[in-house]
Amino acid sequence: MTEREREKIKLTANYRNGIAIAFLAIGGLTAGLRLINQQTPDWVSALAITAFAIIISLLLHYFARAALNDLP
């Protein structure tokens, strides 16, 4: 495996992990801001959005780690 191929794999993993972090941050912030701006907060909906964001983030992080498994 050439150094160029190794760097491509690392960049792919880094990109996927960055998307995972962004998804988690946006999902968590959206749910939190939604609770603040409502007269009667909908906790179930906020927790569902947060849980969904965490699950998607973990899956994306897993795919980033899977890309690194291709390294020798």
Score class of each variant (00 low, 15 high):
A53N: 02
T50I: 08
A67W: 02
D70K: 13
W43P: 02
A25H: 03
I9V: 01
T50K: 05
I26W: 09
I36A: 14
E5W: 06
I9H: 01
I9R: 00
F52M: 11
L29Y: 05
L59E: 03
T40C: 14
G28H: 15
R65F: 07
I54Q: 13
F63K: 12
E3Y: 10
L35Y: 02
L60T: 00
L60H: 01
P41Y: 12
E3H: 14
F52P: 06
A51G: 14
A67R: 05
I36S: 14
D42E: 02
F23C: 12
A46Q: 01
V44I: 07
S57Y: 00
A53M: 04
G32H: 09
Q39K: 15
Y62H: 11
L33R: 02
R4M: 11
I36M: 13
W43E: 04
P72L: 06
L58Y: 05
P72G: 07
T2E: 08
R16T: 02
P41H: 11
L68Y: 07
T40Y: 13
A13R: 00
I9E: 01
N69D: 05
L29W: 07
A53Y: 01
L59G: 09
A13N: 00
I21Y: 06
E7M: 09
L71I: 14
L29E: 06
Q38V: 10
